[in-house]
Design a protein around this nucleic acid. Structure first.
Length: 144
DNA sequence: CCAGGGATCCCCT
DNA sequence: GGGGATCCCTGGC
């Protein structure tokens, strides 16, 4: 319901901007590769590589909308959704469609009302309009 | 507003 | 191989 794009080599806010390291290696894989990183000593964030192999463009998942069960608030925010889905760095480097992953992708309903704003919580390239969210989803906070 | 908490990475021995 | 800055956040004040 809420995502941000990170443009790799051309984006100072992207992890891969500073180079290919052990941590960022999944970003350089084929589309659908999972990149989970640990931040601030207590949170995990989920990203998906989306560009050609060797080109580290990715999408940060900032909100998910549970279809049933957990309240919308538990999927609101990149750290909280990883806790909800029990994702951690062990999931990093796996692929959405590989047999060893716990996460996969299916077609869902299309977004109702897409809005675009600047990204949240970054220090570099703060002005770029690269956050995309469904303004009608209860899983998305009204930030910005 | 602010700090917690730990992995990562840079840069210096 | 070690010290220190940084970090795509969150909950509590």
């Amino acid at each position: 319901m809420e995502t941000e794009a990170y443009l790799g080599f051309e984006d100072p806010a992207a992890h891969a901007y500073r180079g290919r390291t052990r941590r960022t290696e999944p970003l350089f894989g084929p589309p659908g590769r999972i990149y989970v990183y640990f931040i601030y000593g207590m949170h995990h964030c989920l990203n998906l590589a989306v560009d050609r192999p060797g080109v580290p463009g990715c999408v940060l998942i900032r909100a998910v909308e549970p279809l049933a069960g957990p309240p919308a608030a538990s999927g609101r925010g990149p750290g909280k959704l990883c806790r909800l889905l029990r994702l951690d760095t062990r999931d990093s480097g796996r692929h959405l469609f590989a047999p060893d992953t716990r996460l996969t992708l299916r077609e869902g309903r299309p977004p109702r009302h897409v809005e675009v704003t600047t990204r949240v919580g970054i220090r570099h390239a703060v002005e770029r309009p690269l956050r995309f969210f469904d303004a009608d989803s209860p899983a998305v906070s009204a930030r910005r």
